[in-house]
Simulated assay, not measured.
Amino acid sequence: MNKIIVYEYVDFKGLHREFTSDVPDLHNVDFGDCISSLKVIGQPWLTFSDSNYKGLAHPYEEGEYNHISRNDVISSLQLVSEDLEHPQITLFDKPDFKGANKIITEETNLTYGYFNDKASSHIVQKGVWLLYEHGDRKGWEYIAREGNKLPNYESVFRLNKKCSYVYPLKGGQPVIISNILWDHKKVESERNVVIDEINGVNNTDFEQIFTTTSSKTYESSTSHSFKLKTSALKLDGSFYLRIDPSTNILVEKGSIDSVTKDKVEVILPAKIPPHSELNIRVIMKLVTASVPVELTITRNGKSKTECGEYRSVSGSSISAKYIMKPVEKKTD
């Protein structure tokens, strides 16, 4: 849910209010011109010094702000409803969208290129952009929203030929739900690996107790990996893959590379018959498998489905193979 929580004092103290939709006048809810700290969940919010979304505006992305620079001057709040994925703005070096232009799709410091202090007009194709006077995101600040066409900077604010930094507002962390499609599991390979070998010989005429213990514990491991089907897709959120009731694997930024370990007890025979040799081979079965994963990604009330793949190399199956063979009696 998109939400803003505003507090009367710094460090989230004093009276507070919580809002999930636009507030044109905070005075109507007895919270005007008193906000000193705030928390944002989900989409960014815009704060305004005057009611009805007028006056000085400032954006706040998802996060906690224990002290805001424009404290005690906020009179209205507005939720940013635009789709903030794949932002794009076009800057022009002349008014009325003429002259040379620069298309920008990501945060850019113009002081490092050839378009610094040249912009005189712009068109926002998608997203919400912040335009700054200086390369360190200071000085004059302008909020350009999707669909905004500003034909002449000089007539509106003091940024004409002075824009040095452009920044697209980032959406809040998405809610990602994963569904592992176990019915479509594919075993890619299987192989056995001998991890231990124990031998015992009984040359007597009597049954003997095996010299080792009746059981032995071995460590098993399973490696986990996840990747998105579309290599160009980026996930800025995290989610859990529930592998089994006791194993939840955290996926961050669309990938994982982790190992889980366990203990497996193998029962060993306690006795060796007369004139026999017992060979015990402890075998780990390594199974490589892949399973498709369906991801439901929800952000700003909109959901989409993406596909990924979970792979594992499991050595959790450990067993013992017993080979008993007779030995020749020793003669004096």
Rank of each mutant, 00 (worst) to 15 (best):
I4K: 00
V6P: 03
Y9F: 09
V10F: 10
D11E: 08
F12D: 00
F12Y: 03
K13G: 06
K13A: 07
E18W: 12
E18Q: 07
D22T: 07
D22G: 05
L26C: 05
L26P: 00
H27F: 14
N28C: 14
D30V: 15
F31C: 05
C34I: 12
I35L: 10
S36K: 02
L38M: 05
K39T: 07
I41Q: 01
L46R: 07
L46G: 03
T47K: 01
T47C: 06
S49M: 04
S51M: 15
N52C: 11
Y53G: 04
L56P: 11
A57P: 04
P59Y: 01
Y60V: 02
Y65C: 06
N66T: 09
D72V: 04
D72H: 08
V73W: 05
S76H: 08
Q78Y: 08
L79M: 09
D83G: 02
E85F: 03
E85S: 02
H86A: 12
I89S: 00
K94D: 08
K94G: 08
F97H: 13
F97E: 03
G99D: 02
N101M: 11
I103V: 15
I104R: 01
I104F: 01
E107D: 10
N116W: 01
S120G: 02
W129I: 06
L130Y: 00
R137S: 09
R137W: 06
I143G: 03
R145E: 02
N152Y: 07
Y153C: 02
K162A: 02
L169H: 04
L169W: 06
G172F: 03
Q173N: 15
P174T: 09
I176Y: 04
I176K: 03
I177Y: 05
W182K: 13
D183A: 14
D183G: 14
D183E: 13
H184E: 14
V187N: 07
S189E: 07
N192V: 15
V193M: 15
I195L: 13
I195T: 08
I198F: 03
N199I: 10
N202T: 09
E207M: 13
I209R: 13
I209E: 13
T212Q: 12
E219I: 15
E219N: 11
S220F: 02
S221R: 13
S231I: 15
S231E: 13
L235P: 06
D236W: 08
D236P: 08
S238C: 06
F239Y: 12
P245V: 07
S246C: 14
V251Y: 01
G254Y: 02
S255F: 12
S255W: 09
I256W: 05
P269R: 05
A270F: 12
P273N: 11
H275G: 07
S276L: 04
E277G: 04
I280W: 09
I283K: 04
K285H: 06
L286M: 12
V287C: 05
V287S: 07
T288E: 09
T288P: 03
E294H: 11
T298S: 12
R299L: 09
R299Q: 09
C307Q: 15
G308N: 04
E309D: 07
R311D: 00
S312P: 05
V313I: 14
S317H: 10
K321F: 15
K321T: 15
Y322N: 14
M324F: 13
V327A: 04
E328R: 08
K329F: 04
K330R: 10
